[in-house]
Nucleic acid binder design. Structure first.
Lengths: 169, 169
DNA sequence: TATTGTTATACTCTATAACTATA
DNA sequence: TATAGTTATAGAGTATAACAATA
């Protein structure tokens, strides 16, 4: 954990106006979603499809679990998985413990696709925050992680990590 | 500009894992979008409708300008404005300088609606980041503002501030 | 010719409600 | 009865392509 200049910390881009927390976070989320949407489209995926594949890279959640994490109705997840399955990106596996339940698993094709997409994600998000110095990027990462972790805890869902990350499996 | 503890700065929530910049920002954007979507729905708006009204609070952009800022195709903006206009939230005004162009303006009804929604936004975004200390919240605001400002500059669009903010006009 | 905006079309995404199958 | 998931339906949101009007 490196020491760093506090002034730089508090004024990441000198002369830049602070939009206020609400506006800044809202607009940041739009900027990130725009990047995600653009990259996903490049791989013929929607944001949600890409997110689904990212989650499935090392998990086999049920429809209900996916609905909880994605904050979607279960019927929406059914459709989402349907479309991904038609493209051969995921499969449904019968649950060994509950006859009502299915597990959603990624296919080799889906895995290849999401791997390519996540590489691009990382590049473009890097470009989005390129104006920040490295220490500020680290801080942003920590602050965002803390907010996300607290939110997952409050919502009572597992915090699926490495959903958009590029680290090798 | 207050002095503050650097340790706290670099470890916003002790014991919390850093998801990495890409994953953290992506998931933060999903969390924020979920909040925005929930609050917007409470006022019978979509996120994009709410965003449109937020932009229009003190501007009268053209369809083309809206498309640039919202990163949507112009035909999508036509539909967006159509639906808002049908509900009496916005109006189209002929441009005084270009016969091809229209200016989109918010109505009194739209203004009342967006004012109520933005109040709720601020409350819920505050709840989302409540686990951060006040200095960390300020840092997050600055970092997010810097990223958003740099992105707007690169995209060559005006940085519309106060789109989701609650400050009185 | 180029630009601004609309229309026609088709698709994804989403929720609600009703349904089936299993617990 | 309750739960997991699907289906039917309807609507918002989106892009592409073709179009009309104006510059």
């Amino acid at each position: 954990m490196r020491r760093q200049d506090l002034g730089a910390t508090l004024t990441p881009v000198p002369g830049e106006r602070d939009l206020g927390l609400v506006d800044a976070l809202a607009q940041l989320s739009f900027a990130i979603q725009a990047v995600l949407g653009r990259i996903a489209a490049r791989h013929e995926l929607s944001i949600v499809q890409a997110r689904l594949l990212g989650i499935l890279r090392d998990r086999r959640p049920t429809i209900k679990e996916l609905a909880g994490f994605l904050q979607l109705d279960k019927s929406s997840v059914t459709g989402l998985v349907d479309r991904a399955q038609e493209r051969g990106l995921v499969t449904r596996v019968a649950s060994p413990v509950d006859g009502r339940s299915v597990q959603v698993a990624i296919t080799a094709t889906g895995r290849r696709l999401v791997s390519r997409a996540t590489t691009d994600f990382a590049t473009e998000i890097g470009a989005l925050v390129a104006d920040l110095g490295s220490p500020q990027q680290d801080q942003l990462s920590l602050l965002a992680s803390a907010v996300v972790a607290a939110d997952a805890r409050r919502r009572g869902v597992e915090l699926f990590d490495r959903c958009v990350d590029t680290s090798p499996i």
